[in-house]
Design a protein around this nucleic acid. Structure first.
Lengths: 220, 220, 220, 220
DNA sequence: CATGAATGAGTCTTCATTCAT
DNA sequence: AATGAATGAAGACTCATTCAT
């Protein structure tokens, strides 16, 4: 069939394809220009579509942005859930896997990092974020806490506070994200993993060997 | 004289007074509406002044925002610098003092926290932020590193990596800020200090006693 | 269908139509209020369109004004070019035709006259005017000079300075425009043509008969 | 007396001094930025005074501009009136003197030329201009006409139309002003005088010798 | 007389949203 | 399902004018 005609004919695409296309364009736009600098026209242009199509699929700019945030949150949740669901992992491996999910190359791109903090920084979306991720975050917090409790039992000589250690892990992970974004020359992804590993190795030395680099670590 | 009437009377005030007045109105506006939701009209209204006065003192909205960020950064720097300059403090006290400056009640208000992250999140201001705080941050990083090196020498049995520990401290502090902002019901300022104290107590147990609450800690 | 209702219905139109519509509204607005008194809102209202549409088609007020000036300049150039390109005209007829183009009823309306002088008077646009019309004006000046040289050869008893006479013709034409605008009761278009004819008749009496009114003049 | 103290004491100046000072500043401002680009703040700064002082002396910007136009018109009128009032001049000398007044170096500066056309170009001030100069212009027109009539009587062989020739002279003078402003590289003040002399020499050859440069012309 | 901080109506410009095609 | 011309409310910024000093 003639390609030119085909191009004109295939002007419609499945809903999901268009929406994903627009969300990706939105991620790029926010990363580059910030939320306030992102216009529907920019998103449309990046996606190779028209402004009308943006409204057609998302009804409003606000909804497009919320959908974008949703996408990020679900992508992250899917990743650590997958680790959690994976059979034949030790508790320590599972714990590290959940933590490491934050730094996976699909999750921690320059673009996505900037978009996360763009949403954290906008009052309007912070509220929505809280509603949306409350479930996810509580879930992950409980998963970490449960794993830490299990590991604590096998480290009798250490005083472990699972709740506090969860706060430490999650805060440090978040802070490392911020550091990677703001000072990429001073703090790399490998540094970040090393810092979290070090935190674990001080609290659970039997399961996380001090000095072992996270990559080569034999988690037992 | 009646205050209401007095308010309507046009009063001139020193430049610094008006500028501070406007910066404080800007802090409130950003905290409540975000950077993109903050309009010059809003700031003016909050400050009890007119839009023209905002422009008179800051020339542009961009400059007003940058001045606001400047104010925050200098306020924080002044606080930890003061600790550093204070005589008759031990190295451990000095280290803790610098860390604790981040959580001082003048520094860590709900409003200011939101404004910090608003600036981190806006692409446009992130670049300016980096330029502006580079000096401050490098300075503080070096101060921490130097203190950690000194403390490491008196903890011979521990393996201390001053650079890595500095990364850990700063990242955790940043992440705790984010946590306090996003999940105030789950993470309090006292939790935050306890988490940082715990980090230090694991790395420098001789100087930071495990279990001691930071407030009552006898830092020696 | 009812015209009034039809007007309220949003209609798309070719780019050129909208642009011409807006340029004409701009001409009227400048004529009535001057350049500084012409606002985008006024132009939009006159054109029966919205302010957004003005920006959509011209990007900025400055560009709208420049386009308006362009339109005037090209309209004038097209008119005398057409005379120049016309075959079977004698040199004298051609010369007079070029001069007369300045006073054609499509060119010399009250409105357009005011707009020309509005642009001459605004420092900001004078520079642009020069850039834009330099080519046109040089071209016309050369056309006049060439014709005058040819006519001079057939008037051997007269001392003709084609360059100087070109200056005289163009200056007088410009001054007559100004006079028609400022003192319409004292100086009419017919007066203007008579003055220019008189200038020619004194310099090239064989080709431009003294006393002949320009309209009825038998130019040979 | 101490100069510094004197400067602080002499903060007041005669009304006329301040007004002239401000009018000069206005001339410069309009020449450089145009009427719409001229702000009271600019004028005040150029004059080394404050915005308040501008309002104090002229009440409004509009009045300042009108006063500026007044100044120009009176300055020009004074100059040709002086020629007219001068005894022991022949009619031809008087005629040429009145014409030449337009090109006197005090009258025809770059700055003033631009200001004249700025006022001609602004609808708002054109009306005021007409009111104001009607008297002056009628007066000058009559002066020229009267002189031309007198000269015509002594040139019996020429057909002179004093009214038409007055139109020609005034229009050409105005057009030459415009040319000097717009194309200073193509048309100089000397060219302008030569063009007007040429016009007169064709109409009144006995009084204005062809080829004589205006400067050295022995007007008899 | 002179100042200049303060005002706020007015302007240009942006951009989410609509809707005829 | 897709387009993009058109809209108009909203925002940043300007500037003539006021007025307390």
């Amino acid at each position: 069939m003639n390609v030119e005609i085909q191009q004109k004919v295939r002007r419609t695409a499945p809903k999901e394809v268009r929406q994903q296309q627009l969300i990706e364009a939105t991620l790029d736009a926010i990363a580059e220009r910030g939320i306030s600098g992102t216009t529907t026209a920019q998103v449309a242009k990046r996606a190779g579509l028209s402004v009308g199509t943006v409204m057609l699929h998302f009804d409003s700019k606000e909804n497009l942005l919320k959908s974008t945030l949703n996408f990020l949150a679900e992508e992250l949740r899917d990743r650590w859930s997958a680790v959690q669901a994976q059979p034949d992992l030790s508790d320590a491996e599972r714990l590290w896997g959940i933590i490491e999910a934050n730094f996976h190359e699909d999750i921690l791109t320059d673009t996505k990092l900037r978009v996360w903090f763009a949403f954290f920084g906008e009052a309007q979306y912070r509220a929505y974020y809280r509603e949306m991720v409350e479930e996810f975050d509580t879930e992950r917090g409980l998963a970490l806490e449960t794993l830490l409790e299990a590991l604590a039992k096998t480290s009798p000589q250490q005083e472990i506070d699972p709740f506090g250690l969860t706060q430490s892990i999650e805060s440090m992970a978040d802070g490392l994200w911020l550091g990677i974004m703001l000072y990429p020359d001073w703090l790399t992804v490998d540094d970040a993993k090393a810092r979290l590993w070090s935190l674990l190795s001080h609290n659970l030395p039997e399961h996380f060997k001090a000095g072992a680099t996270p990559e080569t670590a034999s988690i037992k």
